[in-house]
Design a protein around this nucleic acid. Structure first.
Length: 508
DNA sequence: AGTGCAGTTGACTTT
DNA sequence: TAAAGTCAACTGCAC
């Protein structure tokens, strides 16, 4: 008898550990609900609720095979050692996990225990993430091969093992505060499959040019991120579905192809980047807590207003309509499109001059699709502390005019501004009497951005910065850039200048 | 028909 | 995956 430990791979399809164990004999399909994990500052009730839905469906799928999911609550080492001794298990199978610092340390404890107890642990790759990798050279090719490998079918049946499980606890027993997210995406595999299918059959056509605006993104983006984060869909099955769709699109006459070619290419590049960023955290787990670049390890941004401004930003009360609309939309839906995530993080890090960790943790708790490898790389990048990329300070007024020209998204999420005329919707402070309930801006956009830019570029000019950047690039920079497709329109393609080319190739 | 000029565009630099 | 600033070339138009 073997244990298959489900972590962030909550599916029976394309699941190598389950398939291998089932082929050998009886299996204990185990999920360990770890109370200590749920007390970490990046965890929230919406993750828990989504997880519960995923586990419910996984349990139904496993039950249909003959053996329900065994849920246990407690410390992983204690639970695994008890199960191993009571049921004579000597092999535990699982997927490799590249997640937060807490799970990283838990896995080290589990491995140490397994070594001392003579238990065999077998971990399989699932995102093309390599352990103990010394250089990125050759990474993309191996990733392609991994994604092109055949899907592993679900086992036909499982032998019943009669192992008892614990009941599903109420989130407050784990110390989780209620987290009402009324428009959260539903968890599970079925919901993910539906989105995959509708994206590749019709929603994806406009993806390339409508992914950035918060008005069009919710419908035209794939919305697969939470299903990939919890593993109810495998990256490989999404990649292969996307490849099939591209092959089919290529056969169409020009008119029926319109939009699809570029959109699917763009989507593919994002699947690639998903894993690229996860690999970064695998290579440098401390990046969750500390800037990639040493010049920022002791970067002190503290100021008298920081606490109040962080609270205002979190609450969607900054006085910048698009920023506030995004923060409130995020509270209610658990999702924001990529460009808006970048904008709200940039606004917190530059205009409000907040240390990156506070905003990063808040966003981690709000994103249903929170994936640490992507999250911390992105938060660091948008805060300008990776040392590799240029400083990118988004202008919340310009983004508002560009991405929500009619104020449609703003009016939907900031009702205080619903009656604001079009001419003032992006800059309501110019006539505050029109919206008495809406706060004045926390900072002056132009002044705050200029101060932040001056401070950031002063650090970049220092000697420490230049010396260390090369080492960060060698370890983390992506090579070739062939997978990158910009989300910007064709008329504004990135120039072929030297700096821009480096930007593509070295993007963190 | 050439000139002056305001406004635009694009490449490049700076923050 | 930013935005603003600079500068030179270009455009359309009035004279």
């Amino acid at each position: 008898m073997e244990i298959v430990w489900f972590k962030r791979d909550l599916r029976i399809h394309d699941h190598a550990p389950l398939a291998t164990a089932a082929a050998k004999g009886p299996v204990i399909p185990l999920y360990i609900l770890e109370p200590e994990l749920w007390q970490q500052p990046d965890m929230a009730g919406r993750h828990y609720d989504f997880l519960a839905e995923c586990l419910g469906e996984l349990d139904r799928d496993l039950t249909a095979l003959g053996q329900p999911l065994v849920l246990r609550i407690g410390d992983a080492v204690e639970i695994l050692s008890t199960l191993c001794s009571v049921h004579g298990v000597t092999t535990i199978r699982m997927h490799q996990e590249t997640w937060n610092g807490w799970t990283y340390n838990r896995d080290r404890r589990v491995r140490a225990w397994a070594r001392s107890a003579g238990i065999h642990i077998v971990e399989e790759m699932q995102f093309g993430i390599h352990r103990r990798m010394m250089s990125r050279r050759g990474w993309a090719g191996k990733w392609d091969a991994m994604m092109a490998a055949p899907i592993i079918p679900a086992p036909r049946s499982l032998m019943p093992v009669h192992v008892s499980g614990d009941g599903w606890p109420d989130p407050c027993q784990l110390g989780l505060a209620g987290d009402h997210c009324p428009q959260r995406q539903p968890g599970g595999r079925q919901a993910g499959l539906e989105r995959l299918s509708s994206f590749l059959s019709h929603r994806g056509r406009a993806y390339r040019f409508s992914m950035s605006s918060p008005v069009t993104a919710p419908a035209n983006c794939s919305r697969l991120s939470p299903y990939l984060a919890f593993g109810t869909l495998s990256m490989r099955e999404v990649w292969q579905a996307q490849t099939r769709a591209r092959e089919e699109v290529d056969q169409r006459p020009a008119e029926a192809r319109r939009g699809w070619t570029q959109s699917l290419k763009s989507f593919n590049s994002r699947l690639h980047w998903h894993c690229h960023f996860m690999q970064k955290l695998e290579d440098e787990p401390v990046a969750e807590f500390r800037p990639f670049h040493p010049a920022y390890h002791d970067f002190d941004k503290s100021h008298a207003d920081a606490g109040a401004w962080l609270a205002a930003w979190q609450a969607g009360q900054t006085g910048y309509p698009l920023v506030d609309a995004c923060m409130r939309h995020l509270d209610a839906t658990g999702w924001l499109t990529f460009r808006m995530r970048a904008m709200v993080m940039s606004f917190a890090a530059y205009h409000l001059w907040l240390d990156w960790r506070g905003p990063a943790l808040h966003l981690a708790r709000r994103f249903t699709d929170y994936e640490p490898g992507i999250h911390y790389s992105q938060c660091q990048m948008q805060s300008g502390i990776t040392g590799i990329n240029t400083i990118r300070i988004y202008n919340p007024i310009k983004q508002s005019q560009d991405q929500d020209p009619d104020g449609e998204f703003i009016r939907a999420w900031v009702p205080e501004l619903a009656a604001m005329p079009d001419t003032l919707i992006h800059t309501p402070w110019l006539k505050p009497s029109t919206a008495p309930d809406y706060p004045p801006p926390l900072v002056d956009e132009r002044r705050a951005r200029r101060a932040a830019a001056a401070a950031m570029f002063a650090i970049r000019k220092s000697g420490v910065h230049a010396r260390e950047a090369a080492a960060v690039v060698e370890k983390h920079g992506s090579r070739g850039g062939r997978h990158f497709v910009s989300d910007r329109g064709p008329g504004r393609r990135i120039s072929s200048g030297h700096a821009a080319r480096n930007q593509l190739e070295l993007d963190l």
